[in-house]
Design a protein around this nucleic acid. Structure first.
Length: 569
RNA sequence: GGCCCCAUCGUCUAGCCUGGUCCAGGACACCUCCCUUUCACGGAGGUAACGAGGGUUCGAAUCCCUCUGGGGUCACCA
């Protein structure tokens, strides 16, 4: 394990993305990583990843770095960091400055902590949590912010007594009482008055460094030159600066990014999914979980406590049953919903940065060339999923058909295997050509065509206004012309007698029929057929749909539809 | 509450540094019309913002001040 400062590279900046371990990458984190990556890679520098797992309570599963796959999927790869094998076999990560897990660097931090203590720049503090709490209360009562200050030398006898009592000290930094000016390339300079930063803890009771200490040591050792991170760290920068000065470290350039919010101004959170589901359950006044979603036990527990979150699979099943769309929060949520990685990157970059000149559509290569701290937005942005969807739609409709088919297939293999199995290659390909121009996501061909999967005798016909109108139920045409249902009955016979079941044959037969019986209005014939085979009024082009469903199924479904509609009156 | 930061259409933003070319541009959304076998796409047009009040100046979205509003932070979390 190397502990000497890595030399500043003669060429290019070094940036880092330093999240706590997690299985998922949040969109805010994705944007931070994207900007860090773009800045370094656009200037011939290095981008590295470091796992900040110094909280033993929250990092029990230090191996949980599932978010790395999300980063890779977005097209963001790191020059140094945790090792990861990409789906294409490439080994990403590693590097000379490891370990990239802070929990594995304890001896390094200890060395620097001891140095500070030896120099009198840091000291042991023996206060118990209760004592600290009391001090905080007192400060609050005086309407002051609590600031911990050096409380006097601890004598050898006192120290021995504390030890005997079983107390374990933390180490606090003796913060110089001077005004501190934070230089930030995004927000500009900010001066904190003297005394604003207290004697904060740098080593916890469990021997782990605090975030502030580990960050400063690692950024130095790993040669980080530019720190781009979330705005919540802005004020913390002062702590990092005093530490750097005490340790004789170089100072990176800082830039802080504003947060990303929901359209309703709330902070984007993984709880948003449960929020949507709870609302739907309440609106539908459900008293028991829909069959096949979650267990009664989970249901009761979840409804009984706002803090309980459903596991992802259960939440997805419930959302399907309730016909609500779960909000995407993490990168893999967007992936599952069929968003393209290049679109996510483009859109994320636009939330908080802009290249100017009214340019909106660009790729990571462009971002790399153009990104700089100077055009980063200072204000928080609301994450507009509608605009994201529009961007995704543009990318999909502008895609070469073969490319669309290829990527949909990859998506289906992962998230919609039942379609692949049911349709077979030829029909799968047909579904792709039939769906591309009306698809907004890679998932739309599947999400919107569930009727392709259900058994003929299980297809449900939706009894709503548009269906009734198309079939002429309850309102027969006043002019005595055929109703939709009558067209369907007649077409049933036409279809049954067709010599071949192709789009061309179906269309010409229907066109001929319509010319004779529907004043040439093909729509009057197509809609009833659509309802007959799909159960509703929305599907891909009708001739494609009929081919996709297949002759036997189509006829069986139409028979059921006629019976169903006849019973409605 | 203390400290710090921020403020352009509903939303993301261009313009602000280097005042006049901005009665503020683009995109998404929205509205109207057209196209249409459903849905969607597409085409044409439209509504819509410089938070408020004071200055400075011949002239302010652009510079200064106050207010208001928003955000961040005040942990042995990161």
């Amino acid at each position: 394990m190397q502990t000497d400062p890595s030399p500043r590279p003669s060429s290019g900046p070094v940036t880092r993305f330093a999240p706590s371990p997690s299985g998922h990458l949040h969109v805010g984190g994705a944007r931070t990583a994207l900007f860090c990556w773009a800045f370094a890679k656009g200037r011939g520098g290095k981008f590295l990843i470091r796992i900040e797992d110094t909280d033993q309570k929250r990092s029990s599963d230090a191996a949980s770095v599932g978010f790395l796959k999300d980063l890779d999927w977005l097209g963001i790869r790191w020059d140094e960091g945790p090792e990861y094998t990409a789906p294409d076999g490439t080994l990403v990560g590693g590097g000379p400055n490891g370990s990239y897990f802070q929990s594995e660097r304890l001896p390094i931090y200890a060395r620097y902590t001891e140095k500070l203590v030896a120099e009198g720049k840091a000291y042991e503090a023996w206060d118990s949590p209760e004592e600290l709490e009391a001090m905080r209360k007192e400060a609050t009562a005086r309407k002051e912010a609590f600031r911990y200050r050096f409380r006097g030398e601890v004598t050898a006898e006192e120290r021995a007594r504390y030890l005997a009592e079983g107390r374990v000290p933390v180490v606090r930094f003796r913060t110089p009482q001077v005004a501190i000016t934070i230089q930030d390339e995004v927000l500009g300079d900010a001066t904190l008055p003297a005394g604003e930063v207290d004697d904060f803890v740098i080593r916890k009771k469990d021997g782990f460094p605090t975030y502030h200490f580990a960050v400063v040591v690692d950024d130095e050792l790993m040669g980080v030159t530019h720190v781009l991170r979330a705005q919540e760290h802005f004020t913390n920068t002062a702590k990092h600066m005093v530490l750097q000065d005490a340790l004789g470290f170089r100072r990176p350039t800082y830039g802080h990014l504003s947060i990303i919010k929901n359209p309703d101004d709330s902070k984007m959170s993984k709880r948003d999914k449960d929020k949507v589901l709870r609302k739907a359950v309440k609106e539908k006044a459900l008293s028991a979980p829909p069959a096949g979603t979650v267990t009664a036990e989970e249901w009761t527990k979840w409804l009984g406590d706002e803090n309980v979150q459903l596991d992802l699979d259960g939440a997805i099943r419930l959302a399907e049953a309730l016909k609500v769309q779960l909000p995407e929060i993490n990168v893999d949520d967007f992936r599952r919903s069929g968003y393209l990685p290049e679109v996510i990157c483009n859109f994320l970059a636009l939330n908080g940065w802009s290249p100017g000149h009214d340019i909106e559509k660009f790729d990571n290569g462009f971002l790399k060339e153009r990104f700089g701290f100077d055009r980063v937005m200072k204000t928080p942005a609301k994450f507009d999923r509608v605009k994201l969807l529009a961007f995704n739609t543009d990318a999909i409709t502008g895609m070469a058909p073969a490319e669309f088919a290829r990527r949909c297939r990859l998506h289906a293999d992962q998230y919609r295997p039942d379609y692949v199995a049911r349709l077979g290659d030829a029909k799968f390909a047909l579904l792709m050509t039939a769906c591309q121009e009306r698809s907004k996501t890679l998932d739309d061909p599947f999400r919107t065509n569930g009727f392709l999967l259900v058994a003929d005798d299980a297809l449900a016909f939706s009894d709503d206004k548009t269906v009734r109108k198309a079939l002429g139920i309850g309102a027969a045409p006043a002019d005595g012309s055929r109703s939709g249902l009558e067209h369907l009955r007649a077409m049933r016979g036409v279809l049954a007698g067709l010599s071949e079941w192709t789009q061309a044959a179906l269309e010409s037969a229907a066109t001929a029929y319509a010319a004779e019986h529907a004043q040439g209005k093909i729509g009057a014939v197509a809609q009833p057929l659509r309802i007959g085979v799909s159960g509703g009024t929305v599907s891909p082009p009708i001739w494609d749909t009929l081919v996709l469903v297949g002759r036997a199924s189509a006829l069986a479904r139409i028979d059921r539809c006629i019976a169903w509609a006849g019973a409605l009156g």
